[in-house]
Design a protein around this nucleic acid. Sequence first.
RNA 1: GAGGGUAUAGCUCAGCCGGUAGAGCAGCGGCCUUUUAAGCCGUUGGCCGAAGGUUCGAAUCCUUCUACCCUCACCA
Length: 494
Amino acid sequence: MRVRREKLARLQELEVNPYPYSFTRTHLSADIFQNAEQMMEKTVAIAGRLMSVRGHGKVGFGHVMDPQGRIQIYVRKDEIGDENFEVFKLIDIGDIVGVTGEVFVTRTGETTVKAQRVELLSKTLRPLPIVKEKQEGDDRVVYDQFADKELRYRQRYVDLIVNPEVRDVFVTRSRIISNMRRFLDDQGFLEVETPVLQPIYGGASARPFVTHHNALDFEFYLRIADELYLKRLIVGGYDGVYEISKDFRNEGMDRFHNPEFTMMEVYVAYEDYQFMMTLVENMVSSLAQEIFGQKIVTHQGREIDLTPPWKRVPLFEAIKQCTGKDLYGKNLDELRSAAKELDIELESFWREGKIIDEIFSAKVEPELIQPTFITDYPVELSPLAKRHRDDPRLVERFEPFIVGGEIGNAFSELNDPIDQRERFLAQQKLLELGDDEAQMLDEDFLRALEYGMPPTAGLGIGIDRLVMLFTDQPSIRDVLLFPAMRPEKSEGKI
RNA sequence: GAGGGUAUAGCUCAGCCGGUAGAGCAGCGGCCUUUUAAGCCGUUGGCCGAAGGUUCGAAUCCUUCUACCCUCACCA
């Protein structure tokens, strides 16, 4: 860095501003490559980060990276003049440059810009981790890749500069979200925004973050889900609403969980969970179609076929298929002994629903590779879902599973205010029994239901997990630009 | 929360049974007017993650701590 500062001083002696205000770019690299023949001998102005330099005395080559790729530049002292060549020699790898010149093809056949002028657009003070690469056929061979995960996550900006495949992941992420938004808009649903700071958290089973509001002198919770507010809007008369937003859950972190994560929730009046299953399989498969041009994605070496319709299997049926045990209607003792036979450890305060869920997670989930809807959950697991029309011990609920993981959760929404109150009261008992993830009773939400909510189908989709599936990433940290990390020592303290 | 792994130059890494720190790339100084992991010559660069201990002597052995990664558990 000392050397870079000296270069800054020398640039200033040459009356070069190392941080000028703008540069007019006429072409991106891909524009030039796509029409290489028409572009020959045309003058272009390109801009980007200088990623490599190969000096040859009075000549130099380098590659400039812009949002579409890398293009080679060729700098001759006799073309750009002595003074400009001095500036060129003071430019380091990593600096942002603008190059004006003519397009031509080198002896080795690479389309290149022959500089008439090289401008420094921003001087870097820190050296970039240099990544050298070579093209071998279609393969890009990278040498000494910037690979330290901690550094990559903490300094994502460097990761993005140096690792183009990381950049691609986040482009795909953005396209997934914008396509999903378009899909939902096309259905006529209204995108809304509901509070992040909530006096009562609800809509999911999880521990919340707590924060203090000074003016109101009140402890708010960061939302763990959007559900209860969106359903208030269905009560309010919007027939279809959705929200794409961050939720916050104060739980452990691993490759599937980050304390803040992105959720899409949608609620549709006059529909039920069957409608929602169709919506999910249509939405996810059409996303794949838009992004990959086909309904098949490859994840961790496995081909996943997203073509509708997806398999639909009731929960107890799935457990029976995987374990040979029919748990339907079994009492607490029978479930405990079944779990024991399957080598599943239980907490003392767990009730029937929780034990069933545990057995399902351990024995069935890992088997659900191709897209599958698991349907019809026990009522005590789902305090916000409507009872099954054929069986009051179940609810009309489903979760879509792909590659052994759930990517969402949906149900026919409970709109009976009396039943809803009873379910909340049952949750309160769980709270008292020590289940710190049981849901809170939300009196205002009940009041809303008492005003009448139409039959409604609701759905939540975990965007991050969907992005993991689509971008073939094994960890949620690889689909979050800035995953949660313990702060560096110098950070976070005043 | 349990177990395992990693931490050495800006980056990627080597460093054996303890003997005082090494390579490639980057950087810096040269040479080179079509190179592309450019090349050639020269050269700078390190509190060996932190703290303690054993020892005449520790990057290396031991203990503790910190951060990150992986697996499991928790968490839908």
